[in-house]
Amino acid sequence: MPSGPAVPTDRPTDRPGDAADDAARGAEVLTAPEIGRALTRIAHEVLERNKGGTGLVLLGIPTRGLPLARRLAAKIAEVEPGLDAAALVGSLDVTMYRDDLHRHPTRTIGATDVPPGGVDDRTVVLVDDVLFSGRTIRAALDAINDLGRPRVVQLAVLVDRGHRELPIRADYVGKNLPTSLTEQVRVRLAEIDGEDSVRIAGGDR
């Protein structure tokens, strides 16, 4: 669950270099190698918990959940020979299932693309960048419901920043990040933003 609006163009596009800009960019809490290590650990945890990669489907929630799901699939395919990374990954757009559509300007709808085998009787792992209120995940559970009936649904997130508004928890967490509500967590990924980093900005600091 991104902390800001889900529309990518609404994200501030801060560029490195300008010193005056640094306060606005906030403190870096995860560097590129740390993101890589967290994903490697999650990949192993997924395989451990599910006793291998049989019937595994990774559904990334656009925008930044999707590249994370792809990276996770590549790492899983590395350790578990015989799995095709591309066939593990799908994307799941939750825009049309959100409960806050009427409180925002129109959101752009992303693509939903399920791997060939579908989700019926599979182990579905939802992948997102930030877990915050839990409302995105609630919407995602509704969206999966319309696609089929998985055997089990699990949740992997890169950052859990707390402040849940629904009884939802993650099965795999890259980093638990205690935050205040006024702070903003910004996940940047090479595929979309050109660099890997997680920063925390705003608040009282």
Binding site: D93, M96, Y97, I109, G110, A111, T112, D146, L147, G148
Partner: peptide, 13 residues
């Protein structure tokens, strides 16, 4: 994107 949802078994959103 709407057309893509209409190819599903459950078409209602």
């Amino acid at each position: 994107q709407m057309a893509a949802t209409q190819a599903r078994e459950i078409k209602k959103l």
